[in-house]
């Protein structure tokens, strides 16, 4: 008589919801602009400033500026999805009663959040490919030293930021508040994580603040793999731990709402 949720059915449910979320994303162009266009625009700005400088020994970890920024902006794409897009999206769901509809249909919360993470992965991958393509087209950025390591670091990064987004979506009161808080967090991270000014020119205070925020670790994890420093296990572990904590926190927070 009991109809427990079969794992395969659960997976199908997640995929179904993911597909719907992706369609909704396409129909909401404003978020798309930010997630896809902003990192590319910033890459262009950085490219125009630093792209042809010859003193790259002192900055950018000894590499060409664009080889440094392209992998860093993969992380930026994931961060913008996690802290700008998802919190506003989910607070809207919570406030408007969309989540209540899922609860009334007894769809478990982890399926709803799982679909958000899955959609975030797809969008982040597209955003990263766009950044890479632009970097290759305009500045001739080539291929990663270790593609597998880049992929793994990128997936861990995206899951981490998606989980943070889910948690913020549970905690922040309304879409407007979420938008404000998300943008604030995003730009603070942007400036202290090696995605704005290169790490070499940051003050030690900036570096310290950056170390307490996930983006700096995400940048290192992806950049190391891209530039040939191999797997950065410290950064990956930190990201995974944050992802786990944020996911559990989010599931708990939604249960109490």
């Amino acid at each position: 008589m009991q109809r427990r949720l079969h794992p395969l059915r659960a997976l199908k449910a997640v995929l179904r919801l993911t597909w719907v979320e992706l369609k909704l994303f396409v129909r909401e162009p404003t978020t798309a602009v930010f997630v896809f266009a902003f990192p590319v625009a910033l890459l262009f700005v950085m490219g125009e400033i630093f792209g042809t400088r010859g003193d790259s020994d002192l900055f950018f970890r000894g590499f060409e500026a664009m080889d440094y920024y392209v992998p860093a902006y993969f992380a930026l794409v994931a961060a913008s999805i996690g802290v700008i897009m998802l919190p506003a999206h989910l607070t809207g769901y919570r406030q408007g009663g969309v989540l209540r509809r899922f609860r009334a249909a007894l769809v478990p919360m982890w399926i709803v959040l799982g679909a958000q993470v899955a959609a975030a992965l797809v969008l982040a991958a597209l955003g990263a490919v766009l950044v890479w393509f632009f970097g290759w087209l305009v500045y001739g950025v080539s291929r990663p030293a270790d593609a597998l390591a880049v992929a793994v670091a990128f997936i861990v990064t995206t899951v981490c930021f998606a989980a943070i987004g889910a948690l913020l979506g549970a905690l922040l009161p309304a879409p407007r508040a979420a938008q404000g808080a998300g943008l604030m967090l995003f730009f603070v991270m942007l400036f202290v994580s090696g995605t704005g000014p290169p790490t070499e020119v940051m003050t030690s205070l900036m570096v310290t603040i950056g170390e307490w925020l996930p983006l700096s670790h995400a940048v290192l994890a992806i950049q190391d793999a891209w530039l040939g420093f191999g797997w950065n296990s410290t950064a990956l572990l930190i990201l995974a731990a944050v992802a786990l904590a944020a996911s559990l926190g989010a599931l708990r927070a939604y249960r109490w709402k």
Binding site: L24, G96, V98, R100, R101, L106, P108
Partner: peptide, 26 residues
Amino acid sequence: QASALRGRVGSQLQESRLPDHLKVWE
């Protein structure tokens, strides 16, 4: 025992929404 009731109770809800851009058939 919510999971055992899934699909066996249908609720219309006095107040709820769907995502704005979701189509009826979807």
